[in-house]
Design a protein around this nucleic acid. Structure first.
Lengths: 357, 357
DNA sequence: TATTTTTTGATGTACGTAAATCAAAAAGTG
DNA sequence: CACTTTTTGATTTACGTACATCAAAAAATA
């Protein structure tokens, strides 16, 4: 069986109380004694029984997640994943409160952060906006000793503990790389649809995309970026107009959350004429984009798994709250690439709750 | 605070003992009483404190992993991931024993399974070989009441609980799809290097690859498959000869573990002439294939994450051992696609051990 | 050496649940 | 009704650790 504190006490030739003092860094132990205990720990290969630790400590982890109110599929998914994790985590003494704020609203976000801070939670995760009041708010939290991670969208240099999200520059590069190869040397220009260049993820994706395209297929010019504000109508209109205007367009990269509008524009475009000629790469696997991929209208979808991001954020917050180190390799959020050949099976119930009865 | 068994007893108006009987499905409770208790559980939203449960039960999960002795990077990685998980899982009352058997040896595998079975572990994971003695062995284990999952390579219809691995047919299709698009309509034939068609994963990948190629670029013929037995020398020789013989070859798909040999052949080929003309897609991200991808020699790498597979197998075994249901969506092993644009950062220490103080 | 300070031991309670025992009550049987 | 069987209650111990208290021993200081 696994060694216990009693075994350590026995092999070290000290009392339980002393072992406890060493294990929990309490004062009043001579260096020699401490070493004896540590030797015994090493020799026996002792590791604490976390079940017992948690039980004895009665520790709870009240975490707060601050996310923009879902106006698009991705944010809706994110919220639902957070709620899901919340119910699943109850078993592990972790409570998660979900705070929703108006999207793209710096003041609202900062105000919410202030309120949250006064609750003194054990950790906070938030979808950041890249603005200095937000940076200040994060610093504020950290000053109050609250572990902080950013989720999905980062704000560099704010002193937070971690960013749980994909590398958007790499995502853009990947998209550009795929696009370049998909075009296969054909002549023509490439269109980019974004939400807004004011959002960091979008800006980074564009940057990466341009990098790769310049490298792989420098002969295909990138047209001026369309900013659809992640709004279906606006996105549809923009794409439609652009496709009409630039007859030589052979590629389209949708790097934001404007897929629904873009798809409608593509449907119109397909009935028009020159069908299969357009290579399309989009972000985020949603029911809409998925259907378009399956139908062959979209060629590839880059995806970030919201569930992974949420769970990673929780792990990191917990580790920080316990003063433990984080396994970096395990917390990297990968960029999923879906073609219609490796599309995961559709789940009616994406999240099935287990009853631990 | 969270409700406890005491709270249930109080609200249901029964004793602790009765609550315990209901919770643990013990006999001797009238249906009416049982319902009262269940109502109270529902009303209070009670969930068991797993920390306390594990502590009280003193339950341990002795699992066994049976894998082929690592003769290639992937299997080495797999073993190391298992060892890694083993140390990390000690904290959660899970012990994992790693049993290594000679590769591709049905008799050795079956013999090992028999020995393992007599140990009566709480669960077994194994890299299966698609042969009927193996099927029988699995049935045997199940008959002994031992939960079973296959890892990496499946053997259908053996009555095991789960397969923790990627969909190899989909992987092949994805490779074919990428290859088809990368070729971009150019004329030329495509070469496939496999380990052995007797291994199920390889056969399935080829099948999927052929499917996609037939659909997307039917004008590019697939040359007779090279079987390199996952041996570097043999693979190198085969690829070298084939590239010399089929001058019109513009694509190469390495679907097994013969990357090292293939890469050497490609190096030779590149110095020869017609450099960038060859599109290459390979499986498994290893130091070698990674370097080749970074150097532009390989265009894409499909990868299965051994760590994910191992952890998934453990989760499933644990759930089965506890008679709990599995969250299917969470256990799907995804097919990673790497271009040199989304290559994860290289980790010197791929697996960092956390010291739990 | 006497005194103070530091270190160590001994012991008990708590955490939430499992599991067992024995007694008591209720239900069912003839 | 007396009796048996089933159901329920009351109580205790255990799991491995945390944490607190008080006494005892050892070391450091005067």
């Amino acid at each position: 069986m696994r060694p216990t504190v009693h075994d350590i006490a026995a092999t070290a030739g000290v009392s339980l109380a002393t072992v406890d003092r060493v294990l929990n860094g309490r004062p009043g132990v001579r260096t020699v004694t401490r070493q004896k205990v540590e030797e015994a720990i090493g020799a026996l290969g002792f590791t604490r029984d976390m079940a017992a630790v948690n039980l004895a400590k009665g520790r709870v982890y009240p975490f707060v997640f601050i996310v923009p109110q879902g106006n698009n599929s991705f944010m809706t998914k994110l919220s639902s994943e957070i709620r899901d994790a919340a119910t699943r985590m109850r078993v592990e003494r972790t409570s998660i409160r979900l705070v929703e704020v108006p999207p793209f609203d710096v003041d609202a976000l900062v105000a919410a952060m202030k309120r949250v801070r006064d609750d003194k939670p054990a950790g906070v995760a938030l979808v950041a906006i890249d603005a200095s009041p937000v940076r200040a708010g994060i610093a504020d939290m950290k000053a109050a000793g609250i572990p902080m991670v950013t989720l999905v969208s980062d704000v560099p240099g704010a002193g937070h503990d971690h960013y749980a999200g994909i590398d958007n520059l790499a995502a853009g590069r990947t998209a550009g790389s795929l696009m370049g190869r998909f075009l296969g040397g054909r002549e023509g220009s490439v269109l980019v649809l974004a939400g807004s260049m004011l959002v960091r993820d979008h800006a980074e994706r564009l940057q990466g995309f341009a990098q790769s395209m310049a490298r792989i297929s420098p002969t295909n010019p990138i047209l001026p970026v369309l900013e659809g504000q992640d709004d279906p109508e606006r996105s549809e209109k923009l794409v439609r107009e652009a496709l009409g205007k630039f007859q030589d367009c052979i590629g389209l990269y949708s790097l934001g959350a404007g897929n629904r509008g873009m798809i409608r524009a593509l449907e119109h475009h397909a009935t028009e004429k020159r069908a299969g000629a357009l290579r399309v790469i989009a972000h985020e696997l949603t029911p809409h984009s998925r259907a378009a991929l399956a139908a062959g209208m979209i060629d590839a979808i880059l995806n970030q798994d919201a569930g992974h991001e949420v769970r990673s954020a929780i792990r990191v917050l917990k580790a920080k709250a316990d003063g433990q180190s984080v396994i970096t390799a395990q917390e990297r959020i990968r960029i999923d690439i879906f073609l219609n050949d490796n599309l995961p099976p559709e789940m009616e119930e994406e999240n099935i709750h287990v009853s631990w009865s």
